[in-house]
Design a protein around this nucleic acid. Structure first.
Lengths: 393, 393
DNA sequence: CGGCTTCATATGTACGTACAACTTTTATTT
DNA sequence: AAATAAAAGTTGTACGTACATATGAAGCCG
């Protein structure tokens, strides 16, 4: 009874001899693992295929049943051998497809089943949805989540990156800080790549870095919102845009493009940029100022997001105006806020939970299949028309 | 044919059902890893012995044949489960002697600077504040955060506890699931204590377990809200209470006590209990029903939280009533929502970020000063009076 | 008592069968 | 030609058996 396909050893014949051999070896603490069990011989045979280059990484090896024939052993024994090699990282199995040689080029780190997530704000109104989407997917895959937030502050981002990268994570989902500006933490991302740790950026990306990202087509979102208002007959539309992240700039681009395409001239007075620190007061004051102006009154407002829209609504009430009769308003994000007020906001909707989930998904794929490129995903927004906008003459 | 020693699931009976269940779940990308294979159930059972402290390090666990009897599965299956756990470092085997629990304390003694946080909902409107409070404090102390959410579901809580406890955390902040009901995961908390890992509960606690907790005095909050309305002259006050967590029950208690103290009789028709699953529709329908009734109309409403209050506001508008002229409304939590609408809600405010921060603080103290008892903290709520309540005759 | 065997019990190896779950290929139908 | 169904191939789970090997305790005996 011999293991057919293997050269060096035969079974029973060597068995007795080797028993003594092994026993003496044990004292020397050498080759203790080299029991000449059948599954170990099969294991070594497979291993030699890999080492000798007979199978390349990602290439399918012989099926279990073929090996049963080749080695003349039971399937159980073959599975035992393969199982060991899978645990040791030589192979991976895919049900229904086969067993494959893994790419052990730079791996060799025990999987921690740990994913880092860095967001700008934890308590802001839409990020929890994104986190939740990622959380539910990752949890279902047995991964844990390491969470940190940067408060849209580059220094804090640096601190987050440092603490999280110390934890030997398998992957990272990050919403970059102030993406419109130059970021001094680029080195950390380059380090991630050098370390072969996959990462995805959500909501934004650094143009300098060609990093995989999931984004919403904000240019189109801004375009949709503006076009909606223009189609309703509005010609003087105020636009509030946050300009320290790319999302705001893109929304503004789309907003302007819609105006150009429909040959609506833009009054620069009506374009109000602001940054994170000014979000509470600047848009409100700008609106009051614009309403005081002698020139032709604006008839519509596009807001960077629903939160700003609600602030704007406060000013509208204070000025005794009515929505949508006197002023149409379009928000962005389609958050809880959009339906909280007496005026149900027309808003640009985009996937939130799904984005988190997708981020998690592509990340896990990149982890499981080392070396696989993460392809950028762009989500298309959708305009949800409610009662805050109306047609005018 | 059932896996005897394990409570929750039975095999073949569930097997076929779950096949389909799993298949549908896959589309939802949920729980894909939680195959309910027999060897996985056995594995989890053994793992829980360890986590719950039923077997100490270096102690022998039940033999394979005993487990065959206990679980009613084949030896092959038991070996598969044990094999996995050996690979993952939970157990080690010695031929002829038995299988033993490995001593994982010695191996990774180094402080991990890792704190687990388990909440019910991540995306719900006030929890992000709590998480953020904890996050900012912990980050400043150089700790990282491991996050998971239970969706207020006991089964998911179990899964969270298992994955997080695998990660060798230094401490745990947990918001318990459905605290008004009996919880089957108590063993895990006892295991934490046995393992000398400090933990704090927030928002709720299990009376059975004498666990350290941070809570809001919800009884007083309910009392304040009701007393405020009674002082304003209201005598028929509707109360919406969530009754599957302790917070809701406490708010109800305080609400009732205020009525008793001021000798205001309570119409049972006006007390509306609901649970998590019914929160969207039941309160709204109840209000419509009450307003249709022939009896004397109620003049005020107390809502379990601001989210419910906003739903109620929708019904109020639909019925063409005015707030506060026709109906006074008091909310709870003083969330963003309280100021989102045209009616600025009177609401019961409690510390949110501060609670998260305090939880983190006491936990870190308990970690640094081993053996120190964590003293329970009760936060006092505060009534923020806005324009949704008014005096009546 | 010390040393030996024997026996019960534990894990380790190896064989076998059957069916489930998944993927890919082929054949069939529309 | 495209959509659909069936078949074949592959890994995954689970049952069973048998015997090998290692340990520890009980019993035997010089």
């Amino acid at each position: 009874m011999t293991l057919k396909g293997v050269k060096p050893f035969s079974f029973i014949t060597m068995d007795v001899m080797l028993c003594y051999n092994v026993r003496t070896c044990i004292n020397l603490k050498v080759n203790q693992n080299m029991h000449n069990t059948k599954h170990n011989q099969v294991k070594e045979a497979i291993q030699s295929w890999i080492l000798e280059g007979k199978v390349a990484p990602r290439q399918k090896i012989k099926s279990e049943n073929e090996m049963v024939e080749i080695f003349g052993v039971s399937r159980h024994t073959v599975r035992q051998a393969i199982g060991d090699l899978v645990h040791e990282g030589w192979l991976y199995r895919e049900q229904g497809r086969g067993t494959f040689c893994s790419d052990r080029t730079l791996s060799d780190q025990k999987p921690n089943k740990l994913i880092g997530i860095i967001t700008t704000y934890i308590s802001d109104y839409i990020f929890p949805s994104i986190i939740r989407g990622a959380e539910s997917y990752l949890n279902s895959k047995g991964y844990s989540i390491l969470l940190a937030s940067t408060n849209n502050n580059v220094k804090e981002e640096k601190a987050c990156l440092q603490t999280i990268l110390n934890k030997n994570i398998d992957g990272l989902i990050i919403e970059p800080t102030k993406s419109a500006l130059y970021n001094e933490n680029l080195n950390y991302y380059l380090g991630l790549e050098a370390n072969n740790t996959p990462y995805v950026m959500i909501n934004a990306y650094y143009p300098q870095l060609q990093s995989p990202s999931l984004t919403v087509n904000d240019e189109q979102g801004g375009h949709m919102a503006a076009e909606h208002l223009i189609h309703l007959g509005h010609r003087r539309i105020i636009g509030f845009f946050k300009t320290d992240d790319l999302q705001g700039l893109h929304r503004m681009q789309g907003f302007l493009r819609a105006h150009r395409e429909h040959r609506v001239t833009i009054d620069p007075e009506l374009i109000v940029p602001f940054n994170t620190e000014e979000k509470e007061e600047k848009p409100k004051e700008a609106l009051r100022r614009i309403l005081r102006m002698k020139s032709e009154k604006p008839t519509a407002v596009f807001c960077y997001n629903d939160e700003i829209a609600l602030n704007i609504l406060d000013v509208v009430r204070e000025q005794q105006l009515k929505v949508p009769e006197d002023l149409s308003i379009v928000g962005y994000d389609d958050s809880h806020f959009a339906q909280a007020s007496e005026v149900k906001l027309t808003s640009v909707k985009h996937p939130k939970m799904v984005m988190g989930e997708t981020a998690a998904q592509v990340l896990i794929e990149a982890i499981q299949e080392k070396g696989r490129e993460i392809e950028p995903v762009v989500f298309q927004p959708e305009l949800i028309v409610r009662s805050s906008t109306r047609k005018i003459e």
